[in-house]
C-alpha cells in the first residue's frame, strides 16, 4: 500500500471514530448546552445547537430558589457516611479473609459474591419494615444502613483482591522483626493497601452518590432526601417542567463524578479484573 493511501485511510478512520464518539457523547453535550441557554432559546424551532448567549441564570435559580442545596448536603453526607462505615468494616474484613485461616472462611467469601448480585427489591420490603420499626424512617441513617447492603459486599470483594496482591513475605518479615499481627497490619499491610483502599472508597462513594431505589422507598421528606430522588421530585411536582433547571441540576450532580472519574481513569481497565466496576 502506498503511503498517501494509508494516510487517507487513517484520516477516514479518525473522522469515523470521532463521529461515533460524538454521537455517544451527544446527550451529555446537549445537557450542558441546555443548562446555559436562556429559557427563550429552548423552544426555538428548529433547535439551535449552540446557545445564542450563555447564561448562568438557571444555576443561580437552582441554588437560591429550590431545595437543591439541601439535597446536595444530604447526598454529600450519605456518600461520606456510607464510604467511611463500609471502608472501615471492609478493610478489617478483607484482611481477615486474606491472611487468616478459620473454618467457614471460603463459604463467607462465596456469600460475599452472592450478595454482590442480590436484587435490592428482595431486601427492600424487610428493610423498610426494619427501619420503620426502629423509628429510623426518613433519616439519612436509614439510608446509610441500607446502602451497606450493596456497598459492603462490593468493597469487601474489591479490597480482598487488592490485599491478595500484597506478598505474604512482607507481613512475615514484620512478624520476624517482633511485631504482633495487629502491628504488622497497621505498619505493613495498610500502607501497602492504601492505593487500593482509596480507589475502593471512591467507587463506593460513587455508588452511594448515585443510588436511587432505597432513597425512593425509605425517605419521603425533603429534609433527608438526597439529590437523586430530590431532583426527580422537582420534576414531578413542577407544573411546567423546566428543562433548563433540570439540566443545570444534572450538570451539578455530575460534576463531582467528573473529578473522581478523572482521578480513577488510569485505573479503570486495571481495576476491572478486580471487580471495581459495578452497575
Amino acid at each position: 500500500m502506498s503511503a498517501p493511501a494509508s494516510i487517507v485511510r487513517r484520516i477516514l478512520f479518525n473522522v469515523f471514530a470521532w463521529a461515533v464518539v460524538l454521537v455517544i457523547a451527544f446527550p451529555l453535550l446537549w445537557m450542558v448546552l441546555t443548562s446555559v441557554k436562556p429559557s427563550t432559546e429552548l423552544f426555538v424551532i428548529p433547535p439551535r445547537l449552540l446557545p445564542g448567549e450563555i447564561t448562568f441564570e438557571h444555576y443561580r435559580r437552582l441554588l437560591t430558589e429550590t431545595p437543591f442545596l439541601i439535597y446536595l448536603r444530604n447526598s454529600a453526607w450519605l456518600a461520606a457516611g456510607t464510604t467511611l462505615v463500609v471502608i472501615a468494616i471492609a478493610t478489617l474484613g478483607a484482611h481477615s479473609l486474606v491472611r487468616f485461616s478459620y473454618p467457614g472462611r471460603e463459604r463467607l467469601a462465596r456469600l460475599v459474591l452472592f450478595t454482590y448480585l442480590l436484587p435490592s427489591v428482595v431486601l427492600i420490603i424487610p428493610l423498610y419494615l426494619l427501619m420503620t420499626g426502629l423509628g429510623l424512617a426518613n433519616t439519612l441513617t436509614s439510608l446509610i444502613i441500607a446502602y451497606t447492603t450493596f456497598a459492603l459486599p462490593y468493597a469487601l470483594w474489591l479490597l480482598r483482591s487488592f490485599m491478595k496482591a500484597i506478598p505474604d513475605d512482607l507481613e512475615s518479615a514484620a512478624l520476624v522483626d517482633g511485631a504482633n499481627r495487629m502491628q504488622a497490619f497497621v505498619d505493613v499491610i495498610l500502607p501497602q493497601a492504601l492505593p487500593g483502599i482509596i480507589s475502593t472508597a471512591m467507587f463506593t462513594a460513587i455508588l452511594a452518590w448515585n443510588e436511587y431505589f432505597y432513597a425512593l422507598v425509605l425517605v419521603n421528606n425533603d429534609a433527608a432526601r438526597p439529590l437523586t430522588t430530590g431532583v426527580i421530585s422537582m420534576l414531578v411536582t413542577s407544573f411546567n417542567i423546566e428543562w433548563s433547571l433540570l439540566m443545570a441540576a444534572s450538570v451539578m450532580m455530575s460534576l463531582p463524578l467528573i473529578v473522581v472519574f478523572a482521578f480513577l481513569q488510569r485505573y479503570l481497565t486495571r481495576g476491572f479484573s478486580a471487580g471495581a466496576i459495578k452497575g
Binding site: 471514530a17 470521532w18 464518539v21 460524538l22 455517544i24 457523547a25 446527550p27 451529555l28 446537549w30 445537557m31 441546555t34 460513587i206 452518590w209 448515585n210 436511587y212 439529590l227 437523586t228 430522588t229 431532583v231 426527580i232 420534576l235 428543562w243 433540570l246 439540566m247 441540576a249 444534572s250 450532580m253 455530575s254 463524578l257 467528573i258 473522581v260 472519574f261 478523572a262 481513569q265 479503570l268 466496576i277 452497575g279
Partner: peptide, 25 residues
C-alpha cells in the same frame, strides 16, 4: 484518552441524570 473518557462516562453517571437527559431528548 479524551475519546475513551467521553465513551465511558455515561456508565458512571447517575441513572437519574441519564434519564432526565433522555427524557429531554
Amino acid at each position: 484518552a479524551l475519546a475513551r473518557s467521553l465513551v465511558l462516562f455515561p456508565y458512571f453517571l447517575s441513572t437519574v441524570v441519564a434519564v432526565l437527559v433522555w427524557r429531554w431528548l
